[in-house]
Design a protein around this nucleic acid. Structure first.
Lengths: 228, 228
DNA sequence: GTCTATAGGCGGATAGAC
DNA sequence: GTCTATCCGCCTATAGAC
């Protein structure tokens, strides 16, 4: 997984830690525990303030550790940030399955929307982290966007076009359609304060997400002529 | 326009500057010129790095002025940031016109999408600034979101519901519909690096925006049962 | 291996020069 | 009115204590 263009590889949380004779190089319970806390805290802080705006100090406080202690575990602010991005991209990749022309457009598209929504719901901080990174010009994710992700989108776009040729859906631009789905699903995490402020709630519950997902599936499928 | 909860009022760029006998208190050509530069530079910097991450230093460099000079003109980083948010909310408000049940849903909804898209296109940095503010928890915009903007959305939502009752459109949740439109239109500015990376372009041109706008109008109108 | 005291630099802001 | 020298606090990172 060479998602991010980095010089010094930064495993931080790569499940099995490197060298040591046999298998039980368990990264000492204390280290593991602290790293988990740090990752969670850092995701929240970077999501809120971006890479520059997020301070190690703030992360340390959120993790309940002394500042210097955080740097001992993660090496540097930069490495920590990159590790978080890679974790999020790994979650993202885990979601992406391949499709073929012979699949049912309605089924695939609905599954696409639902899984993207579920990802956003499961990891709202990760979603915001990604948003902040892209908003800031995607300095760390450029290669990923122009490489892996681009290829995946192009492949899927071709299938959409073939569906359209077969008359299974309207001939909409498949790339704009994918962006529409991404933006709509991410919005509820990324713009949460706006959504809550306008709806006048404290938080969105499981039921809200269910309703929103149903709404999006219905509108988008109908909008591109599936289940007409 | 009390959009933002601030203590010391901060006019900065309120066209006509305050006291002075007659009308020609023209805020000295030099001041006006510098303030313009600063506002533009600051919008870009805060859009990219957020409030905390954006430094006065960086703004000064982008504006081609010494750091201390920037602070002389704008008072403080905080005041500068607030002024930018207010300018963006003013642009936003200028776009919002009232609607009534007797209007044509297709016409109104299409105009809604098109004007929102035009705003994003005209002020991409402002759009990103707003996105960064909300992403960071909307610390300065909470009151606006829960007040003015909420009222506007609720009023429009009621009209949508009445249209649905009259059978002019599907009974979709009007608030989710508004969010869908907002997210879809903002996406091309806020996630520009992603859009460019995936499409493999250097920039989106006037024609692209035209196509995207047409695509969104068609899909959304059809998706909520207008122009079946 | 775990943690802390210290360093060196950049942050915003202001007092005072022109 | 315009601009700059200077202050103090917070930033990341590391050398060294335990």
């Amino acid at each position: 997984m060479t998602v991010i263009s980095e010089v010094g590889s930064s495993p931080i949380s790569s499940s099995a830690s490197s060298r040591s004779s046999a298998g039980e190089s368990e990264a000492s319970a204390i280290r593991q525990r602290n790293e988990e806390r740090i990752l969670e805290a850092a995701e929240a802080v970077f999501a809120q303030h971006g890479y520059r705006g997020g301070s190690v100090q703030a992360i340390a406080e959120a993790a309940g550790l002394p500042k210097s202690n955080v740097l001992y575990y993660v090496g540097s602010k930069r490495r920590l940030y990159v590790a978080l991005l890679e974790r999020m991209m790994a979650r993202w990749n885990a979601m992406l399955d391949d499709i073929s022309v012979d699949d049912d457009p309605a089924e695939i598209l609905e599954a696409f929307i639902r899984s993207k929504m579920a990802l956003t719901r499961a990891h709202p901080q990760g979603s915001r982290l990604f948003a902040a990174e892209v908003l800031g010009g995607a300095p760390f994710l450029q290669d990923y966007l122009r490489g892996e992700l681009r290829d995946w989108v192009q492949a899927r776009a071709r299938v959409f076009e073939q569906w359209a040729e077969r008359g299974l859906m309207d001939p909409v631009d498949p790339v704009w359609l994918i962006f529409l789905i991404w933006s709509a699903t991410q919005h509820y995490a990324d713009f949460e304060p706006q959504v809550l402020g306008i709806t006048g709630r404290d938080a969105l519950g499981e039921q809200d997400y269910q309703h929103i997902t149903d709404f999006l599936c219905r509108l988008i499928l109908k909008g591109c002529g599936i289940r007409g």
